[in-house]
């Protein structure tokens, strides 16, 4: 076994060069890259958590706004229903009034017509009576004669009584 100082020194230098090269070319760049990647992962995780938090906030806000909107919509709906009911009532009343007015008008027209017809009938009847009376009396009966006839009949009726 030869132990030679120059060979030991040579191997120390040789190993030193290898150590330096491995550190400079392999270890440091890889560690730097791994650290950067780890940092990126941490940053991405942070960003992801932030986005998740923002999303949750947005969801909360959305549900809050939705419930508020629903509440307001309910209120408006209720109000609209009330208004609609009032309007319906008014319309119904108006319609009823109109119908009543129309009916009254029709009734009035009918009454007028009835009265007119009654007068007409009375006239016709009177005319008939005149005609019958003329036929019975054998002479024309005018208005004055008719009145006299009636007065005469009434007087006879009064005597008889």
């Amino acid at each position: 076994m030869d132990i030679k100082l120059d060979q030991i020194l040579f191997q120390i230098v040789n190993f030193g060069v290898v150590f330096g090269a491995l550190t400079y070319f392999l270890y440091k760049p890889v560690v730097k890259m791994l650290d950067e990647r780890a940092k990126k992962v941490v940053d991405a995780e942070k960003a992801s958590n932030e986005a998740l938090r923002e999303r949750e906030e947005a969801e909360t806000l959305k549900s809050k706004t939705k419930s508020q909107a629903e509440k307001e919509a309910g209120k408006y709906l209720e109000k609209a229903k009330e208004q609609a009911a009032t309007y319906k009532k008014e319309l119904m009343q108006e319609a009823k009034d109109e119908v009543k007015a129309e009916r009254d008008k029709a009734m009035k027209a009918w009454e007028t017509e009835k009265a007119s017809m009654a007068r007409e009938m009375q006239k016709e009847f009177t005319l008939g009576v005149y005609t019958v009376a003329e036929k019975l009396l054998g002479k024309a009966v005018d208005k004055k004669a008719h009145a006299d006839l009636i007065d005469k009949s009434l007087k006879e009726l009064a005597k008889a009584l």
Partner: peptide, 25 residues
């Protein structure tokens, strides 16, 4: 300086390792 066969091997190994490190980088 006496270049022994083990030193020669060590030099080759060192070259391989340094080359590997450079290729890796």
């Amino acid at each position: 300086f006496v270049l022994t066969n083990s030193i020669l091997t060590s030099l080759i190994v060192s070259t391989i390792l340094i080359g590997f490190a450079m290729v890796a980088k």
